[in-house]
């Protein structure tokens, strides 16, 4: 599997800044949703409808063409590391502790990006910052990127038929501005910066938390040996990825594309062979 080779260079940028990305430390997320709102404000993303989903305090549900930051709220009957709460002492016998995990999800800006690989128009491209962005003037809404994403991030917008997702604020970072979501985040749960620095910081924070007694704490998508070659936006989670609606072992679909073509060629051969076979030999 590819390691984090220089993605920008691979994409043909010979002169380029360091790869920029996000480290989202969910252990300090307070679920204020400032990131969701700031993203919509800055990028003019339309609202997502007024339905009460009742998924704890999450009424957004998931990332979509109209939501590029999504804050998940997970209520669990488990202790929050060393935390003490009287909840489990409720006079009802069968009560455990509670913990309330919150996490702000976003496009992962994968090293091996399925969406980008399969885009037949080149609308999706790799920026000089190593991020993955849709060029809206090119996208023809073929929709191929959507099932190609192992994380269910990118989506097609009803109103204009084009694919939309987080741009990692391409327009802001080009001007040395922090992306809107990270800027708005009060607790620095969303940290923006050069990927290498972020990875170091993340490791330190993880050790801290494990020490403090958060047994399930883990880094997600920070390993360049994983199925997507590591991501430009990686996370510190306090539980299994799937509890947050994230795939536990994502793999970029195009990893096997060569083999797929080989099989297709073989099948094509058989197809041709059978075609010939049908016609050779005795008439009537």
């Amino acid at each position: 599997m590819t390691t984090t080779s220089d993605v920008a260079a691979r994409a043909g940028w010979d002169e380029h800044p360091p790869r920029m990305g996000f480290f989202t430390d969910t252990s300090v997320c307070i679920g204020c949703k400032a990131c969701e709102v700031a993203c919509k404000e800055w990028n003019g993303v339309p609202d997502d409808g007024y339905d009460l989903l009742g998924l704890s305090y999450d009424n957004t549900g998931s990332l979509s063409a109209n939501t590029w930051r999504h804050v998940a709220f997970i209520e669990q009957s488990k202790p929050f590391g060393p935390q003490t709460t009287g909840i489990d002492e409720a006079p009802t016998g069968d009560r455990d502790e509670v913990r309330w995990l919150m996490s702000s999800d976003v496009c992962k800006h994968c090293t091996e990006a399925g969406c980008l690989d399969v885009c037949p128009t080149g609308a999706l491209f790799r920026t000089e910052f190593g991020t993955v962005v849709v060029q809206q003037d090119i996208c023809n809404g073929c929709g191929y990127c959507i099932p190609a994403c192992p994380f269910g991030v990118i989506d097609r917008r009803e109103s204009d038929g084009k694919a939309w997702k987080c741009t990692l604020c391409y327009d802001r970072i080009g001007e040395d501005q922090t992306p809107a979501c990270a800027k708005a985040c009060p607790t620095e749960s969303i940290q923006y910066g050069p990927l290498d620095e972020l990875r170091e910081r993340a490791q330190g924070r993880l050790d801290q938390l494990v020490e403090a007694g958060h047994a399930d704490a883990q880094l997600y998508l920070e390993d360049s040996a994983d199925g997507v070659g590591g991501a430009g936006a990686f996370f510190l989670l306090l539980d299994k990825p799937e509890a947050y609606g994230l795939p536990p072992d994502p793999v970029v679909p195009t990893r096997d594309v060569r083999a797929m073509w080989r099989h297709a060629a073989a099948a094509a051969g058989v197809f041709a062979g059978l075609g010939v076979a049908a016609f050779v030999g005795r008439r009537r």
Partner: peptide, 18 residues
């Protein structure tokens, strides 16, 4: 297509991964 008028954008590139 979401934007049928842009069908020809398919012909901008040739990608074996796509």
């Amino acid at each position: 297509l979401g934007v049928p008028a842009r069908f020809h954008h398919m012909l901008r590139v040739a990608k074996p991964t796509s």
